[in-house]
């Protein structure tokens, strides 16, 4: 599904000084797998998520990102979306005056167009939306509000999962989907993610906490520090991290 080879990424700050963030990431995610990426703040996890989705402003100095065998480094974000890639944002963006339902219907139909499918009409779309919104325990009324405008933190995160279930990506990247959620909301979000799990789909979860991984059990856990994956293992690695912190891996815990 996804193969990342020796990926080096840097950014320029306001003084135009170059700062290297990712220093040779190697990662292989097979179809049907769920991977968790953990690590201290500032280790490059969100950068990796954004680079995968095609955000501008990053210099990719080395390496390849292969999605189903195709190098997507030069590909526009909307094309990556069409190829089945979905990023759930750490901080979902508000779009005032744009109806949530309109937004989602237009997004879904633009993806369908890429796959030569006819657009869903309003009735079919509404039926589908009402079904999916129940699955994430979101208030139906949020459908008729503007995208994320005035949503609580938990509602925004659930809206991301709702979008994901509607758009049915083959590779979902979830950037700290669990941050700022209370325990009930976390369970709803986790249930939504589990619904997406299928042998032909893969999920990458960037997270700080073990508690999400109790609900969505990963196949592989990676620890990322200073732009490198320094350790990978099974789900038990997450327990170890929760218990011991990052110190035992030889990492200065005050890295920011």
């Amino acid at each position: 599904m996804l193969v990342i080879k020796n990926l080096h990424v840097s950014v320029r700050d306001k003084k135009q000084d170059v700062k290297t963030i990712l220093q040779g990431i190697n990662l292989t995610i097979k179809a049907g797998e769920v991977h968790a990426i953990m690590g201290p703040n500032g280790s490059g996890k969100s950068t990796l998520a954004n680079v995968l989705a095609g955000r501008e402003g990053y210099d990719i100095t080395q390496g390849e990102i292969l999605l189903n065998g195709e190098n997507i480094i030069e590909m526009l974000p909307e094309m990556r979306a069409a190829k089945g890639l979905f990023l759930a944002f750490q901080y979902p963006v508000e779009i005032p005056g744009v109806n949530n339902m309109y937004f989602l219907k237009a997004a879904l139909n633009s993806l369908r167009k890429h796959h030569d499918l006819p657009p869903l009409d309003a009735m079919d779309f509404l039926k589908l939306a009402k079904k999916k919104i129940k699955e994430v325990g979101m208030d139906e009324q949020l459908l008729s509000r503007a995208v994320n405008e005035g949503f609580s933190g938990g509602e925004k995160k659930r809206n991301e999962i709702f979008q994901m279930l509607m758009l049915e990506p083959t590779l979902a990247i979830l950037d700290e989907i669990d941050s700022g959620l209370d325990i009930d909301a976390l369970q709803k979000v986790a249930a939504g993610i589990n619904l997406l799990r299928r042998p032909d789909r893969s999920i990458v979860m960037v997270t700080h906490y073990q508690r999400l991984l109790n609900e969505v059990v990963p196949d592989v856990v990676h620890v990322m520090v200073n732009g490198k994956i320094i350790k990978s293992g099974g789900k038990e690695l997450a327990f170890e991290l929760e218990e011991k912190g990052y110190g035992w891996l030889g990492v200065d815990e005050n890295i920011t």
Partner: peptide, 15 residues
């Protein structure tokens, strides 16, 4: 915002 724009692009909208 670049954030707003990237959000829409990542959902499959053209610029």
């Amino acid at each position: 915002g670049d954030d707003q724009l990237f959000y829409c692009l990542s959902r499959g909208f053209s610029k």
